[in-house]
Design a binder for these strands. Sequence first.
RNA 1: UCCUCGGUAGCUCAGCUGGUAGAGCAGGUGGCUGUUAACCACCCUGUCGGGGGUUCGAGUCCCUCCCGAGGAGCCA
Length: 459
Amino acid sequence: MDERTIRKILAEPPLGEELAVHGWLRTIRHSGGLSFLAVNDGSSPAGLQVVCEQSLPGYDHLVKQLATGCALRCRGTLVESPARGQDVELRASAIELLGGADAATYPLQKKRHSFEFLRTIPHLRPRTNALAAVARIRSCLSFAIHAFFRERDFIHVHTPLITTSDCEGAGEMFTVTALEPEQLGGKNPFAADFFGRRAGLTVSGQLQAEIYALALGRVYTFGPTFRAENSNTSRHLAEFWMVEPEMAFCDLACDMAVAEDLLRTLVGRVLDECGDDIDLFDRFIDRGLRQRLEAVRVTPFARISYSEAVQTLEGSGRSFQFPVSWGMDLQAEHERFLCEEVAGGPLIVTDYPRQIKPFYMRQNDDGRTVAAMDILVPGVGELVGGSQREERYDLLRTRMEEAGLDLDAYSWYLDLRRYGSAPHAGFGLGFERLVQFVTGMANIRDVIPFPRTPGSAPC
RNA sequence: UCCUCGGUAGCUCAGCUGGUAGAGCAGGUGGCUGUUAACCACCCUGUCGGGGGUUCGAGUCCCUCCCGAGGAGCCA
């Protein structure tokens, strides 16, 4: 692994040097006795042009075998390119075919494919420009998230994937069981199960993150979450990744400030580190993407309370499919109008009616709203949902009773308010929605390597 | 889960009021000493999603099932 990646070679071209490059052939063009290979090794959207002359050892035999998709080792000298289209190219002295790809059956072609088709070949689609760029941006964002929190003294906590406590209002859980299907009948089959009670895959790490926030101050968790909801949209997955900071001694204003800082920092990081990939999305997927991201980087987010939002919608003169009134949840059309037409960019909506929000959100002094906030972004909708948590024992207990929760099962959660309770707040950021926002990709199934949706988990 | 629109060649699609399927790209063969979605010539490609029905005759009309997409709900 001592060879330089193509990304490194293109960034600082070692002109005149002998190089060895590994990669996959994207296209091959013959012109008389010359062959031009576009070789890509995954390190950058740009590939390296490798030029083969007829004098190359084994040229006639070799060129017949080379086709889109084959794996190659190319040796040669890096030279300035005499033709337009690239600055440098590799003048080949030896080409070694490591793994062939039969052109007649290989599903990927030089031309563009629909994302819908690519979803049918999840084992091959990362070899396309767009899916490879998504993978690089995911990786960049993932590292940037850890860097952001680390720089601010947050502790990364690994919350459990298997859990026995549901986070109320967060959708349906996948059951985790060691029982055989035929053992699942009867009144309480899980008493004989691995954990002695019903367990499931986590729908959120929030409640466990709160435990650690009330011990370590600032924590975050970043991992997969699972929802067994039968939702079939371009913004939902059954398995998705979520970033969930939880901060003690932090109120709603602090919560919003951290979330906004995080988003704008991440966008800046991607612009700095994945500029070539962003250009690819800007050109082929979402025109104007780069400009929008540059604006997000430097412009503070607009803010509006739920009550102001309802007034704005009522006074807009628009006719909505769902009429607006105080107390109802904002519909997708309302969020889109507020975010895309009123704010023209990311928008934070705060202080929702308490009856439409979960039990753990902190009640405001007006008695009818809670200290909640959602961040809406154009094209994606809700990217972040967060709140200040109810730290007052009596108020929390009352709300849990109202919600019909089993207080025994959540006694540990109440204990956090009985011993050393402190104001605290947190939020959840949908990682795939962030990748959608940053890449302009229309469908969430194309911003995660292996999308899990109702009826679909192919490999 | 509901609503809407789709499923025709390897891919992207066309196919009219029913008459027996065709373009581009990909692939193959040949040509071209600087190509860039290369180009030029020729050639090949089909259980029209599955099943049932109407009809002399169905890609086209009807029923049904499966799959996909968009939107809604729910949410991140």
